[in-house]
């Protein structure tokens, strides 16, 4: 317990030494992070892809090939890396013959405990959403998690109207979650009794995503049908 421990001797503050130590430590740490990132990157990418494909397949059972696209104001391009600012990622599912079956995209909104993320399936012939898959949620078990199982709630999404205005700039009707058993129109979602906040999060997530995606996607649907940009 003598001079061996520099901690007990208060030395004159040497800024150069402090800067040197911090730089050394940070560069060491930076190197470590980059190395591990490099090593784990492929595994993480595969993992994410597997999880996503599983959800898309559950939504669109006919899908034999799934291609990722980004829709932006400039048009539709094959997805590369993270979507650029303002672009929306979506997934086109093709059947065995290579014809476009349906399109899936993800939307999210804040629920009761955390963000509720849902993958919704869109078909252009009916201009409607035909199903949802909850991809992320931490809602109250027994109450909020009914959005996954409640048959009456899921029925809302068998033909949810998301048609666009004639100028293709926005949805004709805002997709909206309404109080339990007051649904009147095709674009309304009937909330689960007792789980209104979670039900509303689902509606808002779909609406926010569809409002951005569909005006950018529908004019360029041909590109997707011909697998434009896909290898």
């Amino acid at each position: 317990m003598s001079g061996e421990q520099p901690i007990h001797v208060v030395p004159p503050v040497n800024s150069l030494r402090m800067v040197r130590t911090l730089m050394l430590v940070t560069s060491l740490c930076g190197g470590l992070i980059v190395a591990v990132w490099q090593i784990t990157l492929p595994a993480i990418a595969t993992n994410k892809k597997v999880v996503l494909e599983r959800s898309v397949r559950a939504l669109i059972p006919n899908a034999s090939q799934i291609v990722e696209y980004d829709a932006s104001a400039q048009g539709v391009t094959a997805a590369k890396g993270d979507p650029a600012d303002g672009a929306v990622r979506f997934y086109a599912a093709y059947d065995k013959n290579g014809t476009l079956d349906a399109i899936a995209a993800e939307g999210g909104a804040r629920g009761y405990t955390d963000t509720v993320r849902v993958l919704y399936g869109y078909r252009h012939d009916c201009e409607c959403i035909f199903g949802i898959q909850v991809t992320q949620m931490r809602e109250t078990p027994g109450i909020g998690d009914k959005i996954i199982t409640d048959p009456a709630f899921l029925k809302n999404f068998e033909r949810l109207d998301v048609s666009l205005t004639p100028d293709l700039k926005s949805l004709f009707n805002v997709v909206k979650t309404v109080k339990h058993s007051t649904k009147q129109f095709g674009w309304e979602i009937d909330a689960i009794a007792g789980a209104t906040i979670t039900s509303k999060a689902v509606g808002r997530g779909i609406n926010d995503s569809a409002q951005r995606l569909l005006p950018m996607l529908v004019p360029h649907l041909e590109v997707v049908k011909q697998k434009g940009g896909a290898q």
Partner: peptide, 10 residues
């Protein structure tokens, strides 16, 4: 090697 003054940061 870690100076006392910047130990928490380090």
């Amino acid at each position: 090697f870690i100076p006392r003054e910047v130990r928490i940061a380090t």
